[in-house]
Amino acid sequence: MQRVNMIMAESPGLITICLLGYLLSAECTVFLDHENANKILNRPKRYNSGKLEEFVQGNLERECMEEKCSFEEAREVFENTERTTEFWKQYVDGDQCESNPCLNGGSCKDDINSYECWCPFGFEGKNCELDVTCNIKNGRCEQFCKNSADNKVVCSCTEGYRLAENQKSCEPAVPFPCGRVSVSQTSKLTRAETVFPDVDYVNSTEAETILDNITQSTQSFNDFTRVVGGEDAKPGQFPWQVVLNGKVDAFCGGSIVNEKWIVTAAHCVETGVKITVVAGEHNIEETEHTEQKRNVIRIIPHHNYNAAINKYNHDIALLELDEPLVLNSYVTPICIADKEYTNIFLKFGSGYVSGWGRVFHKGRSALVLQYLRVPLVDRATCLRSTKFTIYNNMFCAGFHEGGRDSCQGDSGGPHVTEVEGTSFLTGIISWGEECAMKGKYGIYTKVSRYVNWIKEKTKLT
């Protein structure tokens, strides 16, 4: 034993070699072989497995989906700052455009905790909710729209109204504003409101030439003092309507412009014939205590009207009353817009006519005020429907199939267009061939041609 100890002390290297040989010859039971080890760690190889990531292109799944990435790591994937920024906006807080917040056709661009709407022409605001041009839906104005110097929408209202708090709607500024039905039992019968379409306001006024200088022999019209197929109006439903009495009662109609003036057809009036105007009328054979009678003290036909040349060209006249009318729910003026808007309103496509005229061709006159909704007829169809001249200051309205029309005794009465609950004068009943005849239409004086003249002559002093 002493000898062994001496050998170990003198030859430590020998001992180490012996131990190493023993270990190498022993069977290893701690580690699995290569094949079995792979069965336990069965993990798919990654895209760049075996390579240094710093030297390969980034992978979106590896960089940002398996674990949260930084902007720089995302930049490695896209290799483009702009594309990385677009991805980053949604990656950080989701897609803010998912709810489609942009209105009126706006395009949404996502941002971090926010979004941006790219608005089409005519709109602005956070969600493109603000109209900035009158060309689109009248700028959301209830009545009139004008573009300011910086191309912003400025709404306005006709006389007797003021802008509401929203700067879009119009509200009454006087007790009985024009064009409004205020009798409670008839307010439910107000005709369907007309909503502004998209309009090209630059070209809204037709490029028409008034044929002022045409000389033409007097034409022989049949029954051209021209509501057939209409309905009984309720008291106060058309408070701007008046009836004219002269040699015979209810020979023509008219509309209240203001307390002192009536507008009617020029062919209705004769110099030297006494005319009485009755406002607030409903049943011409009954006294309903809503009527107001006034005498006409002055007749002003349009300066281009000449019955000797043509009885229905420039067929418009103004009547001055001896005493002002007292405005109330049964006696209310009709609204008159400017030339541009009167023309736009007419193009809405349908209007209402009213009167006490004959209820059928050569038949009896109506006792109760009649009204009828009539569609506008395109000019080409209008011209083809008659052998008589249709001037540019006239328009056609009615039904091709016949059966409904204005008729004798309705002449001078109103053709009105309702705009968001307020009625505007767009025409004056003038003439036609018979009444409600198939293929024939009622012919009306186009008020847009005469609004400046009306307003100039009827100013209240």
Rank of each mutant, 00 (worst) to 15 (best):
L211A: 11
N127M: 14
E320Y: 03
E79V: 15
G58P: 14
V248C: 04
N100L: 10
Y47P: 10
G413T: 10
G13Y: 10
M8S: 13
L41Q: 15
D378E: 13
Y91N: 15
L23I: 11
S99E: 13
K168C: 06
M6I: 05
C128Y: 01
A37G: 15
C157I: 00
V92M: 13
S99Y: 12
N147M: 11
M6D: 07
N127L: 15
Y352W: 05
R3I: 11
G421D: 07
H415A: 02
N295T: 04
S423T: 11
D110I: 05
F251R: 04
N42H: 13
V199P: 12
Q216V: 12
E27N: 06
L383I: 10
F121V: 15
D33V: 10
A164R: 08
L130R: 14
K89N: 10
E420A: 14
V273I: 09
K146P: 01
R404M: 04
S365E: 15
N213T: 06
T332H: 06
M65R: 08
A207W: 13
D338L: 03
E79A: 15
F360Q: 10
T458R: 01
A164C: 04
P175D: 06
A397R: 02
C252F: 00
F238K: 03
S406K: 12
L425K: 00
Y444M: 05
N147Y: 06
N147I: 08
S220W: 07
D315N: 09
E340M: 09
C108H: 00
L372C: 11
V374E: 01
E73F: 04
F221L: 13
I429E: 12
N127H: 14
Y341E: 06
V277I: 11
C69Y: 03
G125N: 03
T271F: 07
Y161C: 00
F121M: 08
K440E: 15
L52Q: 15
F345D: 01
E73I: 05
D131L: 08
F123C: 02
T158G: 04
L23C: 06
R46F: 09
G253C: 11
T16N: 04
G357A: 14
Q185D: 13
E285L: 11
E61L: 07
E72A: 15
I309G: 10
N138I: 05
F399I: 15
V353M: 05
T186Q: 12
V228W: 12
E434H: 13
D338N: 09
R162F: 10
N5D: 07
W453T: 01
S350P: 12
V451T: 05
P235Q: 07
T84S: 09
E288L: 05
L327C: 03
E433G: 11
C435T: 04
L327T: 05
D111A: 13
V331P: 00
N48G: 05
T287S: 12
T381N: 10
G355C: 08
V174M: 08
V257G: 01
D223S: 13
Q237I: 07
C28I: 01
M8Y: 07
K188M: 11
D249M: 02
N313E: 09
Q185R: 10
V92Q: 15
E208T: 13
F388T: 14
F87W: 15
C170I: 01
Q237K: 04
Q2Y: 13
L319H: 00
K293S: 07
T458D: 01
V248P: 02
D410W: 13
I7M: 14
A266M: 03
P101H: 06
G94I: 07
T225Q: 11
C382K: 03
R384Q: 14
R384W: 04
E320C: 02
E281V: 11
G357M: 14
Q185M: 08
M65C: 04
T85R: 07
E165H: 12
S385M: 11
G160E: 03
V278D: 03
V181E: 06
T190P: 10
P239A: 03
C145Q: 03
S70H: 08
Y444K: 01
I309N: 15
H289G: 13
S114R: 11
R140K: 15
C407V: 06
R449V: 14
P172K: 06
F388M: 12
Y330D: 04
H400T: 11
A307F: 09
I40W: 06
Q90H: 13
I210Q: 14
K109P: 01
E129M: 04
I275G: 02
G398V: 04
T386P: 04
R358Y: 05
N59A: 11
R379Y: 14
N295I: 02
C102E: 01
L24H: 03
N135W: 09
F360P: 13
E53C: 04
I210M: 06
Y441E: 00
G363Y: 09
D378K: 06
T81D: 12
V263W: 00
F144W: 02
F388N: 12
Y22C: 10
E418I: 14
F71V: 11
H302T: 02
K387A: 11
V377D: 01
A250F: 08
I390V: 13
E82H: 10
S329A: 11
Y22G: 04
F251N: 06
A317G: 02
N283G: 07
S187V: 11
V181H: 08
T29C: 11
E456T: 11
G254V: 00
E320W: 01
P324G: 04
E10S: 15
V359Q: 13
H415T: 00
N304V: 03
I299P: 03
P177G: 03
I336Q: 02
T458P: 00
E10C: 15
R46W: 08
C252N: 01
C157N: 00
E27S: 14
E420H: 06
A149I: 11
D405Q: 14
E231Y: 05
V416D: 00
R83F: 06
V202G: 13
R384S: 07
S430I: 14
Q216H: 11
N222R: 11
E420M: 14
K438N: 05
C108E: 00
L189C: 07
K188P: 14
G125K: 03
T381P: 05
S25P: 07
L23R: 01
C157E: 00
R364Q: 08
S350L: 11
N452Y: 08
C145V: 01
G254M: 01
C117P: 02
N203I: 07
L23K: 00
K109F: 07
S255P: 01
I297C: 02
S217F: 10
S182Y: 10
K440I: 03
E231C: 09
P177Y: 01
N310V: 03
C134N: 03
E82M: 08
Q143D: 00
C18Q: 04
S411D: 13
S354V: 14
Q90C: 07
K457S: 14
C97H: 02
V278W: 05
H400K: 09
G58Y: 04
L163Q: 03
C28G: 13
V269L: 11
R62D: 04
N48H: 08
S385K: 10
C97T: 02
A266P: 01
G272D: 02
Q408H: 13
I299V: 07
H289E: 14
G105T: 04
